[in-house]
């Protein structure tokens, strides 16, 4: 797995304004945030609070209107489009609410794509790594299936495999269980917990307190501002219910 000893994601005074609306919508209003190496950070907030926008701004998918984002000391806002793409390819992984796969590739090729792109000459190593990942997340038997032939849970696990295929430093997850039933959600969250346990830094946006309880720390956004932050400590199955209750109570304090 990746070396996360020095991995730090840090943003300062981050703002994002969308000018397409009238008047322009200021979705992020000066957010300061630090994600520690190996941390599982959960971003919560009501709809429209700016949590997904924060995720996309710190992952370089969107350019912030102002402020800075540093990944392992590298200023992402100063990078060109091509340089930023290279960072996403080699240092970041993404999991979305919908699987978002390429329909004309089978499951394995979808997962393999970033690995092959990152290291075109190391095909065999990439295949071995991807096959191991698929084995690990229990989707080896559907590796040659089309994306329309597998369940939502399998698809989301495939999504996790794809995010891990190029051994990223940080993994971004935007509502990864939003489209799944509770049993599938648990499967996916178990997988993420597993990945986190092996040292990967995770930043996850969710509405679901049960999922959020898996994180080390939860931050709460309201109207584009970071309202509060709560340390949850390391996850353990034994204290899950108590942890979820405490988190829910904290969230309710903030009007959740």
């Amino acid at each position: 797995m990746s070396n996360t000893i020095n991995a730090t994601l840090e943003c300062q005074n981050l703002t994002k304004t969308f000018n397409a609306t009238d008047p322009p919508a200021k979705v992020l209003n000066g957010v300061d945030l630090t994600v520690k190496d190996g941390e599982f950070l959960v971003v919560m907030g009501a709809s429209g609070s700016g949590k997904s926008t924060l995720l996309y701004c710190i992952s370089g998918m969107d350019r912030p209107t102002s402020g800075s984002v540093h990944l392992q000391g590298q200023d992402l806002t100063s990078l060109s489009d091509t340089e930023m793409s290279q960072v996403r390819l080699t240092q970041m992984g993404f999991i979305f609410q919908q699987g978002y796969f390429l329909g004309n590739l089978n499951i394995r090729d979808n997962i393999l794509l970033p690995a092959l792109k990152a290291a075109p000459r190391a095909t065999d190593a990439a295949i071995e790594r991807v096959d191991n990942l698929m084995e690990r997340f229990g989707i080896a038997e559907v590796r040659l299936h089309g994306i329309t032939e597998v369940s939502g849970g399998q698809l989301q696990r495939a999504s996790i495999c794809r995010a891990l295929a190029s051994e990223p430093t940080v993994l971004f997850a935007d509502e990864p269980t939003g489209a799944l039933n509770s049993s599938m959600s648990t499967d996916v969250m178990d997988s993420l917990t597993d990945i986190h346990a092996s040292g990967t830094t995770i930043v996850m946006v969710t509405h679901d307190p049960v999922c959020a309880a898996r994180g080390d720390r939860v931050i709460y956004l309201r109207d584009g501002l970071l309202l509060d932050s709560r340390e949850l400590g390391a996850w353990s199955e034994a204290h899950a219910t108590k942890r979820e209750d405490e988190l829910l109570a904290w969230l309710r304090e903030h009007g959740f």
């Binding site: 004309n104 295949i127 994306i147």
Partner: peptide
């Protein structure tokens, strides 16, 4: 979906050579 799946099963990105992705 069936058509798409059939086609997807036939692809093999890794063995498609080392040409430009």
């Amino acid at each position: 979906a069936k058509r798409l799946a059939r086609r997807a099963r036939g692809t093999n990105l890794a063995s498609a050579g080392r040409g430009n992705m």
